[in-house]
Structure formats: C-alpha cells, structure tokens
Design a binder for these strands. Structure first.
Length: 407
DNA sequence: TCTGGGGTCCTAGGACCC
DNA sequence: TCTGGGGTCCTAGGACCC
C-alpha cells in the first residue's frame, strides 16, 4: 500500500452564516443576502450573489448597502449557527477522531487512518461534502494536502462548493506565484512590510535568507512565515474544539465588549456598561468553572483610537464585583472621562480551573457576600432562562430593551 | 449610518530575583 | 567601587483570524 501523501483536509463552509440563514427560505436562494451589518456593525457573511457586488465580510454595513442596496439583510442567529456547526463537526468525527475545529465553520481533519476503511482522501472529501449537503442543506469546500497550511490554502482556492488537492510535488508551482497575502497569518500589515522589502509573492519569501526575514519580522514570525512559504509547516492536526466554543477547552481568556449605540462621554453610562460586561464575563467564567487573575479593559474612542489596560490581582477571581471594581480603577486611571467613547470591553485573562485553586480565606472577607450574590444570580438565570442575558440573544434582539443590572 | 465581537499569539521593556 | 546575565512576571501594544 502506498503512503497517503495528502491526508490533511481543511473543510470550510461556503458563506456559512448566509447559507444557514437562507437554507429554509428558498425565496432567498438566488438573492444577494447579507448577515449582520446593522447599526454601527460590519458584515458577518455575504452570499455569493452579494459578493458579486463587492460585498465582503468585515465590511461596514453602510458600505455594503451602498454597493448592493437590493441585498436582503438578516440578523445573525448564533444559536442556529452553533447547532449546524456542532452537527457538521459530528459528521467529521464519524470519519476520523482527528478533527481540529478552527471556528464555527471550518475544521482540519487528518484522514490518514481512515483510508483503508473509506478510500483515498479525495473520496473521503466527496463523501463529507455529500453528507453535509444532504444533512444540513449547505455546501462546503475542501482542500487536501500534506500539511495544514497548504490544505487551508487549497480550500480557499476550491471555493465555492469545490475540492482541490495540492500534492507535495505541486506545492512550489502552486504556492510560489501567489501573493504573500494569501498565506495564513499574513495580514495587511505584514503584507505591506514584505512589499516594502520587495517581496510580493510567496516565492519571493521562499528565496529570502531566513535571517533577513527574521530580522524584519521577529524570530518566531520569520521562521513561521518561511515554513509557510516552503510548505514545510509540520504542525499536526490535534483533536480539539475551537477556543471560545466551550467543551473542556483550555480557554486562556474570556471577555465581552460592546460598541455603544452612540458615542458617550458620560462616566455613569460607561460604568454601567462596564458592570454589565463584567457580569456577563464572570457568569460565563463561573459556568465554565474558570477563575482568572488579570483583568483587562478595552477603551475605543470616537476617533477609533483603541487602548488596553490591565491589572493583575493577587488571587484569581470569578466575582463580578471584583472584576468590575478593577475595571473601573483601570478606566479612571485613563483619565478619559471627558472623551467620547464608542466602545468599552472587559476581559479576564490567565484563566485556570477553579477546582485547582485553593482560595486563601481572609477574616471578614468583603467579597464573600458578592460571591454569594453571583451564585444567586446564576441560579435565577438557570431557573428563568437566559433570554435577556445570553450573548447570542443580545445579538439577536433586545438591543433597545436590554435589562440593566447596574444599580 | 465608517469601521463587531470573540479570541490567540508575539514582542518588548522594566521590575525583580538569583 | 564602573555597571554580567538569565529567568520570570507584569504591562502595553499590535497583528491576525473567523
């Protein structure tokens, strides 16, 4: 039996949010559809019909509507996206346990151990595509290669609704003519830096001495980029869920941020937002059994300048009041009370499992009561549902009617 | 109607310790 | 009496991804 040379699959749903949002609405099947992009928002997903007008995800909603005024705009339903995503990932796991979920709509699979059972990787890719189409009513594209980064590149070039294999002996001819920006991890900033060095294509980078690359990009980034350009990235596919999607993953941080409906220079308003966000983050942490020591805030000014400030506590916490107090101290230390802000965020970093932390009990500890209060709130949420507190429902509706926990 | 919200990882400088 | 050198923690910032 010959060795499997392209056992790594990268599966990427086509226009995932837009596809899920319209799959039960045949009247929208051939329409330009935009998901997201409401007031002060950006496009989360655009159907291929909308993309034909130049609409892209990440684009401000206002710009998208200028480009394609006839597009149907839908609010995101993250509960539905998550449900479809979980089902898709389960389909993958019926083929191989080596499924690395990268986000709601994409995953890497190592099918090297499944070829005896299911046939060559290309056949497996087609089986998966057929199953997902039958079971979920959406299409996906698959890239096959010997490495993750090349597989990822292949899936993008296979879109929409296609399959592309890049065998090891094709890597140079396929990769090297591409713009460096096509490489995973090369965004606009790195691309500009590389262009300033006269490096435009992947091949240009591959021919550069490693030391020169590292001098300009840093040690780790330079080495990583060279690996990508040569197609020699050896990182393996590990079975895991994506960060931020729960299920026992070692989350390193949890946070929440929100752009205001309109810019505000009102300290009282900002503090109420910080409390809401701290409460939301801490509730999620308690639900996940996590505590963290570093509290960070994000402040974005009306002119889009964005600052981060953080403070590390003596002990990890999941207590809303403690995170809130720290967030307020960080905000006050900025001296931004007179400035108009468009967004604040609260994040807790350095998360560890609460079970592994021995809490130092102090006499007359003031936070004890607050921890009790948190648990009472958690019980109320568990009993009456999270319709007004869950992140998904906040995004779906309630923007005007959201209940404030601020006192 | 300009520019979301969830994350991860890397770098660099200063403090601090041995 | 003339300033090493490495490791770790903390903080700030930035790039990037979906």
């Amino acid at each position: 039996m010959t060795a499997v040379v392209t056992p790594i699959l990268h599966v990427d749903m086509d226009a995932f949010y837009a596809s899920v949002a319209t799959r039960d609405r045949p009247e929208l099947r051939d329409q330009p559809v935009i998901v997201g992009g409401g007031h002060r928002g950006v496009v989360l997903s655009a159907s291929y019909q909308a993309r034909a007008f130049g609409v892209r995800s990440g684009m401000p909603g206002a710009q998208a509507r200028r480009l394609c005024p006839q597009a149907v705009t839908l609010a995101p339903d993250f509960d539905a996206f998550s449900t479809v995503s979980r089902a898709v990932m389960e389909t993958f796991r019926r083929v191989t346990p080596l499924v690395e979920v990268a986000s709601l709509d994409e995953a890497f699979l190592d099918v090297g151990g499944a070829v005896r059972r299911l046939g060559p990787p290309e056949a497996i890719a087609e089986q998966l595509r057929a199953r997902i189409h039958d079971e979920q009513g959406i299409t996906c594209s698959v890239g096959l290669a010997a490495t993750r980064s090349v597989a990822k590149l292949a899936s993008r070039r296979a879109k929409p609704d296609g399959v592309l294999t890049i065998a090891p002996d094709q890597v140079v001819e396929q990769l090297h003519p591409l713009d460096v920006g096509e490489l995973y991890g090369v965004g606009e900033s790195t691309r500009s830096a590389l262009r300033a060095l006269g490096l435009h294509t992947v091949g240009d980078v591959a021919r550069m001495p490693l030391e020169v690359l590292q001098h300009h990009l840093g040690r780790a980034s330079g080495a990583h980029l060279m690996d990508l350009a040569l197609g020699t990235d050896r990182s393996e596919v590990v079975a895991r869920n994506a960060a931020g999607f729960g299920l026992g993953e070692p989350d390193r941080s949890m946070g929440a941020q929100e752009t205001f409906g309109r810019d505000s220079a009102d300290r009282g308003f900002v503090l109420r937002q910080l409390l809401r966000l701290a409460a939301r983050v801490c509730r999620r942490m308690r639900g996940a059994g996590k505590v963290g020591r570093t509290v960070a805030i994000t402040v974005r000014y009306a002119d889009f300048r964005t600052l981060n400030r953080s403070r590390t506590l003596p002990e990890p916490t999941d207590v809303t009041q403690e995170v809130y107090r720290t967030a307020v101290a960080l905000y006050d230390a900025l001296g931004a009370h007179r400035d108009r802000l468009r967004l604040v965020g609260v994040r807790v970093e350095g998360l560890v499992s609460r079970a592994g932390v021995h809490h130092q009990l102090e006499l007359g500890e003031p936070d004890h009561g607050w921890a009790d209060a948190d648990r009472a709130v958690d019980r109320a949420v568990a009993r009456f549902g999270s319709a007004v507190v869950g992140p998904a429902s906040l995004l779906r509706h309630d923007r005007g009617t959201r209940r404030s926990v601020a006192g």
